[in-house]
Design a protein around this nucleic acid. Sequence first.
DNA 1: CGTCGCCTTGATTACACTCAAGCGGAGTGG
DNA 2: CCACTCCGCTTGAGTGTAATCAAGGCGACG
Lengths: 248, 248
Amino acid sequence: MFASLPASTIIYSPGRHKADQEAMPLSSSGTCIAKSASPIDNGYLRGRLDGVGSSVEVAKGQEIVGQGDRADSCFEVIHGCVRTLQRLEDGRSQVSEFLLPGDIFGLDASGEHEFAAEAVTAATIRRVRLCTIDLLTREDAAFEQDLRHHLCYQIKAARRRLVALGRMTAAEKIAGFLLEMSGRLDASEQGAVKLPMCRGDIADYLGLTIETVSRCMTDLKRRNVISLHGSLIAILDRRLLATKETLH
Amino acid sequence: MFASLPASTIIYSPGRHKADQEAMPLSSSGTCIAKSASPIDNGYLRGRLDGVGSSVEVAKGQEIVGQGDRADSCFEVIHGCVRTLQRLEDGRSQVSEFLLPGDIFGLDASGEHEFAAEAVTAATIRRVRLCTIDLLTREDAAFEQDLRHHLCYQIKAARRRLVALGRMTAAEKIAGFLLEMSGRLDASEQGAVKLPMCRGDIADYLGLTIETVSRCMTDLKRRNVISLHGSLIAILDRRLLATKETLH
DNA sequence: CGTCGCCTTGATTACACTCAAGCGGAGTGG
DNA sequence: CCACTCCGCTTGAGTGTAATCAAGGCGACG
């Protein structure tokens, strides 16, 4: 029924950051819209907002933007962790993304925010007005380019998450999440990272329940794939996590 | 994408303590990045590519871009229906979006396509090189603006789908899908629309199985919420679909 | 008329959810 | 200092939704 699927197009890459790095073409000739040589994904705008806007401190759990708020600013996380999420009236909620220092959110806004942003931990964020962004794009072609790359990356990231939410099992979701976070968070000297978000946030990020998140993690611990002490997690066997032999 | 669904579903903004205590006048003078008065979502680029690029005919099922293909072009659907999807090595697949005439895809590409694009039906598509797009953005500030709005809309659409995939039941997914499609497709004189995609595609779009899609639709038919004859579908009780009292 | 593709329907299974209880650390107050 | 609650996490038992397995219907097409 479908056109043949080339063998070279094989797929699932839980190590999404790594996969993207490899995906970046090295030739820079006709790249056009495509950014040719960025070693860091999602880093298109890193540092581009330094010195712009105003810094704000938010307490743990505090709302930064609410669902339905008018979108007139974007934000860069300076310190701490932020989640963007949508809440349904019956209590269900879906976390769209976790934002860590250097990450920017709210650039995609037009009109009003459909998703709220809340501080996962106490956080420092930089607030930049969208008109400032607009100004920058007009004055600086390179910035405009980088902004567009940033938006493209957001789309790709969201689509990767569609696959995870639509077609992955609980164990696969957890494995992918841990790999993602271990790549984004700074590891301590023991190679462990401290997850800033609670189990409930992880559940809402992956479309699972708290209990399932807990059970999957405990299971990985029992198999010595990870070590686990509360929110402190170290990946002991990265290959096993990535290849999904973690499923019994 | 499920924009029509959450009329009552948008919901709940807990604390109103925003981070922006200080100043930041909400003067509407600076709409900036936010497009304030577009009646049509996803229409930011409609017609903008007329006369650009080259037209291509593709047969039903034919691959337009493959996973891993170098991204050097974007496409506008002129006629027919196209799906973008990711296939996993074990046969699972996730459809990211269905594209109908006027819709554009591939603009988000940078480096290589993570998602394939395939013709759902026989289709005519316009192929535009990304360097042409790049050129247009440099020459035409309005185009650049519209392109950015388009990308922002893609992000929002993808996030809406995250909620659907992560937190909706099968019945809710189907209901939202039917509402979305009835809004995007041209209705015949009887108010019925012909879904261009098969049950399997719908299943892969919603993260369900073919059987579940079929059962849910049959159920809606039995309740006289929709009429259903193969791929010809009419919504008989839109309110019931939207309020999700369709769940027994 | 037979095959094929797509869809529907039924029976059964299993994965993740729900409900419920208990653990342990942090913080509070007597 | 200890008892207490609160909160987040874990664990267990049972349930339910959607998946799986399987069969059959129907229309298109050769």
